[in-house]
């Protein structure tokens, strides 16, 4: 009787032991954010001082408040999500459903692109963004986004879109693979163009996929660090996002206030954890349906 029971117990151990490390870590984070100092998980003095960034700007009034930065982050994440979903589903549709020379090559290419390290491309992308900034209308001074050039929310979003595309395209392709061919044929015979088929017939039928990719992209964007850090001038500038706001506490002061960093980190984390809790069910649809050739 021991043997059959041993395996589940072992499995649970494998799950629970590493999980407890996460719990310990986040417990420490929580305690730290409300303490002056900690020793292990023991607070050496409770305080709310670390959270004062919520109601005052700790670096002076000329810097944007946490709420403005949060809004920036939200806008950037939403923009990035929107573009990723639209572009991925356009391309995923073509790769899944249309015949053209080089289709398989293009599909391989999208995966190979993921092998291009972001670090490699940071400097040249900087030049590209400077160049986009010179394009009238879309380059700069667009309301809310700032534009799509250097040091704008739109520009940062666009770069992140590019790095998210390989994943997005493969995920969306998987969903398109599972749509019945007869439905699409029927729409073509009814008189629709391929574009209308995509928009009016297929897209409404892969809502679970769109939702899943949106959630994943949003979470990725919210948390992005390196790209916003590189492509916005000044961590406290008007295009600052939360992960950069955090950076203020680390380098601008002589002594890094780690407890405040913990608090800002938690502030950034809490909304997306809640978001994830409510959307996990939808996110779990991300694998379109078990068919080969999908992701």
């Amino acid at each position: 009787m021991l043997r059959p029971k041993l395996k589940p117990v072992l499995a649970y151990l494998v799950l629970i032991v590493p999980s407890s490390l996460i719990i310990l870590g986040f417990l420490w984070l929580l305690i730290t954010s409300f303490s002056t100092r900690v020793e292990g998980l023991q607070s050496l003095g409770w305080t709310l001082n670390n959270w004062r960034f919520l109601w005052e700007s700790p670096f002076g009034p000329q810097y944007p408040s946490i709420w403005a930065v949060t809004l920036n982050t939200l806008v950037m994440s939403l923009i990035m999500t929107l573009i990723v979903v639209v572009v991925s589903s356009l391309t995923g549709y073509a790769l899944s459903r249309m015949k053209f020379p080089g289709r398989k090559g293009f599909l391989s290419l999208t995966l190979i692109l993921h092998a291009f390290p972001s670090v490699t491309l940071l400097i040249p992308i900087y030049f590209v963004l400077l160049w986009i900034a010179k394009i009238p209308l879309i380059g700069r001074d667009v309301p809310l986004l700032g534009g799509f050039g250097y040091n704008t929310i739109g520009g940062v979003a666009l770069v992140m879109v590019a790095f998210q595309l390989p994943f997005g395209i493969w995920i969306m392709k998987g969903f398109f693979d599972n749509i019945s061919w007869d439905m699409e044929r029927s729409a073509l015979i009814d008189g629709a163009s391929r574009f209308k088929v995509w928009w009016q017939i297929i897209m409404p039928n892969i809502k679970p996929g769109i939702a899943a990719l949106s959630i994943f992209s949003f979470l990725t964007a919210w948390n992005a660090y390196l790209i916003p850090l590189t492509f916005t001038a000044g961590r406290a500038g008007k295009s600052a996002v939360l992960s950069l706001y955090l950076q203020n506490f680390i380098s601008e002061s002589v002594m890094t206030e780690w407890n405040a960093v913990a608090a800002v980190g938690l502030f950034q984390l809490v909304p997306v954890v809640l978001f994830f809790l409510f959307t996990q069910e939808a996110l779990l649809n991300i694998y379109g349906g078990g068919k080969k050739g999908g992701v």
Binding site: S180, D182, M183, R185, S186, L188, I189, A192, I201, N205
Partner: peptide, 20 residues
């Protein structure tokens, strides 16, 4: 000619109705 230019109607085994 594209399907839409052929003036045909088609009925499929799976009916191929638009579920939405």
């Amino acid at each position: 000619l594209l399907p839409k230019e052929r003036n045909i109607g088609m009925v499929f085994q799976s009916y191929a109705l638009y579920p939405h």
